[in-house]
């Protein structure tokens, strides 16, 4: 981005501009299933305040959200529900694997648990920890924002890295 002081104009690329808009207006959908939900509550309320990073207000409708936060263990029974929620979200959309259960299955190596949600939906950012401390989540959000800024964005149509 370049600012022209004399004329009062800002010159930038459309992609960079859209990336800048999108990274600071993340609307998370908290797909809360388990223990990590307690840390999600902490991180989204006053003490740690995710609002400072432009990712504050949880949208409980997948159609209004652009960041799917998968918070907590996903069992095989829950997996189709997660896939459906992901499919209902509009592009562009990002997925955060919140907690080690969603990253790899954690210490639930058993018949009931999905071994990492990346086997059923694409994941953009992994925040391990059981549960991750709020600071780790904030770090994850900042990293995701960097990633969004670096992405190629177009005004119309889906995100450049088309995924199905």
């Amino acid at each position: 981005m370049a600012v022209n002081q004399e004329s009062g104009f800002l010159t930038t690329k459309v992609s960079d501009f859209l990336g800048w808009c999108r990274k600071y207006s993340l609307f998370p959908y908290p797909f809360v299933t388990a223990c990590c939900g307690m840390e999600y509550m902490s991180v989204s309320s006053a003490h740690y305040d995710l609002d400072r990073f432009g990712a504050a207000w949880p949208r409980f409708s997948p159609r209004q959200a652009d960041l799917l936060m998968v918070v907590g263990t996903i069992s095989h029974k829950m997996a189709p529900v997660l896939q459906m929620v992901y499919a209902q979200m509009c592009e562009p959309k990002w997925v955060m694997a919140f907690g080690v259960c969603t990253c790899t299955g954690g210490f639930y190596n058993n018949y009931a648990t999905v071994q990492g949600i990346d086997t059923i939906v694409p994941v953009d950012i992994y925040v391990p920890g059981c549960p991750p401390r709020p600071e780790a989540v904030i770090d994850g959000i900042i990293k995701l924002q960097k990633k969004i800024q670096a992405d190629h964005h177009s005004m119309f149509g889906p995100k450049s890295d088309e995924r199905n």
């Binding site: 299933t33 223990c35 069992s75 029974k77 829950m78 529900v81 058993n110 018949y111 009931a112």
Partner: peptide, 28 residues
């Protein structure tokens, strides 16, 4: 059953002292 994480089966695989982390996550 959407959060059935098979604590019992996991605890069967480990010793008595190693079951504590599983009990943390029963009512988290």
């Amino acid at each position: 059953g959407y959060l059935h994480r098979a604590f019992e089966k996991d605890c069967e695989q480990v010793g008595w002292g190693m079951a504590f982390p599983y009990t943390d996550r029963l009512n988290y």
